[in-house]
Amino acid sequence: MNEEKAAILKGTLDMLILKIVALGPIHGYAISQRIQQISKDYFRLQQGSLYPALHSLENRGLLAADWRATDTGREAKFYKLTPKGRKHLEAEMESWERTAQAVALILRTAQ
């Protein structure tokens, strides 16, 4: 039933998470909703696989986390970008741009 949904390209999930977190502190559930919303449900994301990625980013010092209350008053773990994470995100985005351009160039000129 989800055949038209694409799996997230290997290695890009980290970048997507960082980009979303860059907008402001946010908890895990909200991140998963954002990815679905912004990509207009294009990506097929097994929600459970989001968390290992978050924990790994936190462990690498790219994300920081603390517990605070949500709008509904529940305690949730909010992630935010560290300065190191911001640098990493910029580098990743730049390299992604270049890769995408190169790929597009090849696809176009090889026609």
Binding site: Q46, Q47, G48, S49, P52, A53, H55
Partner: peptide, 18 residues
């Protein structure tokens, strides 16, 4: 169902932490 295996996710989180 959407979430997938919780225990597996936990284990992967622990693994991710190293």
């Amino acid at each position: 169902i959407e979430f997938g295996g919780i225990e597996r996710a936990k284990e992967e989180c622990r693994e991710a932490r190293g």
